[in-house]
């Protein structure tokens, strides 16, 4: 019983560990080296899915901290990724409060809204308060592929959710 409870805790912590690992390690989801335009913001897909499905296993404080770590590793001004992730949480929590039952299609649409708000904030802060320059085509590709890949990861996370965590709504 004790052992199974420990294993459950590990499975519950899985998404959070993955988020921290993606932020702190060299592992990234920008596959520009292989496919020239393929870049993906995997972190926001991960955050949005778990905020919608099980907010109790993705605590706000941890997401905030993961954002700060991401800023340090990527060389962005401190706090900018945290703000972008918090916008994702905010939209996700709002959608969760307003809706009774969600489907992959409704989650996809609301994710699009969350990503738009989050990226507008991120790039307007980066543009106005830092020396970093970026091309709008890159932002476009990044947003397109993030949105395009959302249903695939939604299905994968859903399988993980049902198999390892249990389909109990928080």
């Amino acid at each position: 019983m004790v052992k199974s409870s420990f294993i459950n805790k590990i499975f519950n912590a899985g998404p959070l560990i993955l988020l921290y690992y993606l932020c702190i390690s060299e592992v990234d989801t920008n596959l520009e080296k292989m496919f020239e335009i393929f870049t993906l913001n995997f972190q926001i897909i991960l955050i949005y899915f778990w905020v919608i499905k099980r907010p109790d296993i993705m605590a706000n404080g941890h997401i905030f901290l993961a954002g700060l770590i991401n800023d340090v590793v990527m060389g962005f001004p401190l706090g900018i990724s945290s703000l972008s992730y918090l916008i994702i949480i905010f939209v996700g929590t709002y959608v969760r409060n307003k809706s009774v039952n969600t489907t992959i299609a409704s989650d996809w649409f609301t994710f699009f809204m969350a990503m738009i708000f989050s990226n507008i904030l991120f790039f307007s802060l980066l543009n106005n308060f830092s020396d970093l320059s970026f091309t709008y085509s890159k932002i476009g590709y990044n947003m397109f592929f993030t949105l395009f890949m959302f249903p695939i990861f939604w299905l994968l996370f859903n399988i993980y959710h049902i198999t390892f965590i249990g389909n109990r709504d928080a």
């Binding site: 907010p55 706000n60 404080g61 905030f64 401190l78 706090g79 918090l86 905010f90």
Partner: peptide, 17 residues
């Protein structure tokens, strides 16, 4: 599990930024 509200963390992130 949520010890901090989104609003308080947004303010904190803005201050740090």
């Amino acid at each position: 599990a949520q010890k901090f509200s989104v609003l308080s963390l947004i303010f904190l992130a803005l201050i740090i930024f």
